Amino acid sequence: MTATAALEILTARALHPVRHGFFTRKGGASSGIFAGLNCGQGSSDMAEMVAINRARVAEAMEADGQALVTLNQVHSADVVVLDAPTQARPRADAMVTTTPGIVLGILTADCQPVLFADQTAGVIGAAHAGWRGTLDGVLEATLEAMERLGARRANIAAVIGPTISQSAYEVGQEFLDRFMAEDTALSRFFINGQGGRYMFDLPGYGLYRLREAGAGHAEWTGHCTYRDEGRFYSFRRTTHRAEADYGRLISTIRL
């Protein structure tokens, strides 16, 4: 079995035939707390191991390593338009392109990786959507950027990959208050937890924003990063264990 064959890649029928993948941590070269396919250049993992992992991802996407583009993600609603590969890691949380061969890569460890495609127009996108970016409109901004490149919103399929589920996402009153200040109807994405805390439904909220924005199709793969340690990295799980750092999953799409 080749290194690439050992990878586990989740896909969504809604995005086919566009090549894409939500990669799990399986099949990577990293060890220790990063064991598996850690693709986070910002982690404290050995740079050589991260480079090997990213090369395996590029190979799985049938692309050269230099074609894989990731961002300096800052929990914003900023979107960049790419017409050529870059290793500069633009400061943004989403990107779109019509250029074949560019592999758009989003790094996550509980936040939502969202892949977009309008197959008819030949426009794709990828977004990093944590609670802050989703609240601030990164998903809508990605749809708008795709439209400017010729996509039709009604033809865009958007798929949320592995992310933290409501049963694992405990938040406090201040967190809830930020959403209530936006719209009291958002209370539907919170249920009561223990000790006056709440449980937040991040993928449910992401789907709501996508559907309200008019995406032609929106779905979540249903995978929880926190609950499935064997397949996914999780920032929150690492925090609960007081570990020094955590790996980053990668989700990719290309024309």
Results as ranks from 00 to 15, higher is better:
Ile124Lys: 11
Pro17Trp: 09
Ala60Phe: 12
Gly130His: 07
Val18Asp: 04
Trp220Glu: 14
Asp93Met: 05
His240Cys: 12
Arg188Lys: 04
Met95Cys: 07
Gly161Thr: 06
Asn192Val: 00
Arg132Asn: 06
Asn38Asp: 15
His16Leu: 06
Arg178Met: 10
Ala5Arg: 12
Gly195Thr: 10
Thr108Ala: 02
Arg241Phe: 07
Pro90Glu: 13
Arg231Asp: 01
Val123Ser: 06
Arg227Met: 02
Ala12Phe: 00
His20Trp: 11
Ile102Tyr: 09
Glu62Ala: 15
Ala58Asp: 05
Ile106Asp: 09
Ala63Leu: 09
Ala60Thr: 11
Ala213Cys: 07
Val159Leu: 05
Cys111Ile: 10
Asp45Val: 05
Thr24Ala: 04
Gln166Tyr: 07
Thr108Ser: 04
Glu48Phe: 14
Ala141Cys: 02
Asp110Pro: 07
Leu82Trp: 11
Ile156Leu: 12
Ala154Glu: 03
Ala151Ser: 08
Gly161Ile: 03
Thr221Ser: 15
Arg25Gln: 02
Asp93Leu: 06
Gln173Cys: 03
Asp83Asn: 10
Thr108Pro: 04
Val171Asp: 13
Thr120Met: 02
Thr98Trp: 07
Ala168Met: 10
Gly172Ala: 14
Glu170Thr: 15
Asp118Phe: 14
Cys39Glu: 01
Tyr246Met: 09
Gly196Tyr: 00
Glu219Leu: 01
Leu7Met: 08
Leu139Ser: 09
Tyr226Pro: 08
Gly101Asn: 12
Ala126His: 02
Ala145Pro: 02
Leu176His: 10
Thr120Leu: 10
Pro90Gln: 13
Leu202Cys: 03
Val96Met: 08
Ala242Arg: 12
Leu115Pro: 08
Tyr198Cys: 01
Ala5Met: 12
